[in-house]
Nucleic acid binder design. Structure first.
Lengths: 240, 240
DNA sequence: ACCTGAACACCGTTCAAGT
DNA sequence: ACCTGAACACCGTTCAAGT
């Protein structure tokens, strides 16, 4: 007799939206987007698939709630209390929070793209935008540039986070568990793939292929943030 | 007797990968990702669902090929011949090509995120990276900064394009057909939604909400590109 | 070599029926 | 009020059979 569920667990406190979302995040992290089904989720919660619909309207809301939960946790680096750090450093902290979240939850980036196209700016985008915008305001940026500067930061972060999630997912699929050695091996693979591209068609990529090997993702990401911050600062110097 | 298909069309030249991908893009554009099914695609091509599998291994490859086709067309602004324009202007052209592509194909941004996480850097990312990298090289950037600068540009573009695709999709779903008047109406909706946010929790967003109304998406996008380009330039001045 | 279409193993979602 | 689980209308994919 095979065990039916690897999660017997005592009884079960009554189902709740919170518990369902929590279980959904867990499933997304462990078995991926394709593994998150209402049947699997129900089994995980020791209930039937129909029960979930009492608390959640459908799969769209479920994915949205999972995304929001993870983003909210990632962005909560600024506890609305003491703001001893410089705005630039706080931007870096928020950015890194999201970056690391996409590494821990490789499904996040795609869900962000998907989420944004469902309910516009619904709940997750304003969170990020507000958090970054406060720091922009705290810098020397004139009000007319607030929107552009904050948008640029957010777009860079979302793009980079998406890219990182992609890489993490690829590495995970290649069976690399995430240790530094494995990560290096993965980057070697990428670098080798780049060097294998047609030199006629991709001369630039081949020229920088060796720069990929051994570089640190987070460091690279922060270098980009610094670059965008430099652009924000440079933009309203005398002459602009 | 109802007509069975709204696409009788003479006979049909024999099926081909190219024709299938073309039809897939058409379906994605008209009925969205959820509307692209093998059965619908087969009907569109006056054949059976099984026939498609002779030319394409499965849905993943189908979506990947559709994405690549659209990206390749969008990035092909630099005909490898005369390069009279400045590198900065070429960056703007490539960036705008992708931006407009996400407007014409709202499913593109999500597919980009998805695609990148399947086969790493497979076919679409190198195309974009190469195209931008050539321009970075043509600017005054020292070789050590090529990778960072090109990455920053690409990440900003992907993030902004994703955001734009999201907005386009939302506007389309709201029944706005894309004319300027409708677009303005949509932005009014966004602006109003922002102003309705809790002022305690979102003070910054409320402060910039009025800046959204009447702003031009493409102009805003290009302002971000200019900002990133300024960051790239500023970054290797004396003192850095 | 290329196409057909029934069949299989799933999905998300609904809903009468239970407690 | 909350949960159950069978049932419905789909999917992607396979594969024997055709041409």
């Amino acid at each position: 007799m095979a065990t039916r569920s690897r999660r017997p667990e005592r009884r079960q406190e009554p189902l709740s939206r919170e518990r369902i979302v929590e279980a959904a995040v867990e499933l997304l992290d462990t078995v991926g987007e394709r593994g998150l089904t209402f049947r699997a989720l129900a089994q995980h919660l020791s209930t039937g698939p129909g029960a979930i619909y009492w608390h959640i309207t459908g799969k769209d809301e479920l994915l949205g709630a999972a995304t929001e939960a993870v983003v909210a946790a990632a962005v909560a680096v600024e506890p609305s209390g003491r703001t001893a750090d410089s705005p630039e450093d706080t931007v870096r902290a928020v950015a890194l929070g999201l970056f690391d979240a996409t590494e821990a939850h490789p499904w996040l980036a795609m869900q962000l793209a998907m989420q944004l196209s469902r309910t516009p700016w619904a709940t997750v985008a304003p969170r990020i935008f507000e958090s970054l915008g406060r720091q922009v305001r705290a810098m020397d940026v004139p009000e007319a540039h607030w929107f552009t500067a904050t948008s640029a930061l957010m777009h860079y972060i979302l793009g980079a986070a998406g890219q990182n999630a992609a890489n993490s997912a690829s590495a995970a699929r290649a069976g690399l568990t995430g240790g530094d050695v494995d990560r290096d091996a993965f980057l070697d693979t990428v670098s080798a793939a780049w060097e294998a591209l047609d030199p006629e068609e991709y001369p630039f990529i081949r020229a920088v292929a060796n720069q990929v090997r051994g570089h640190d993702d987070r460091e690279q990401f922060l270098a980009g943030i610094t670059l965008v911050l430099a652009g924000i600062t440079a933009h309203h110097r005398p002459g602009h």
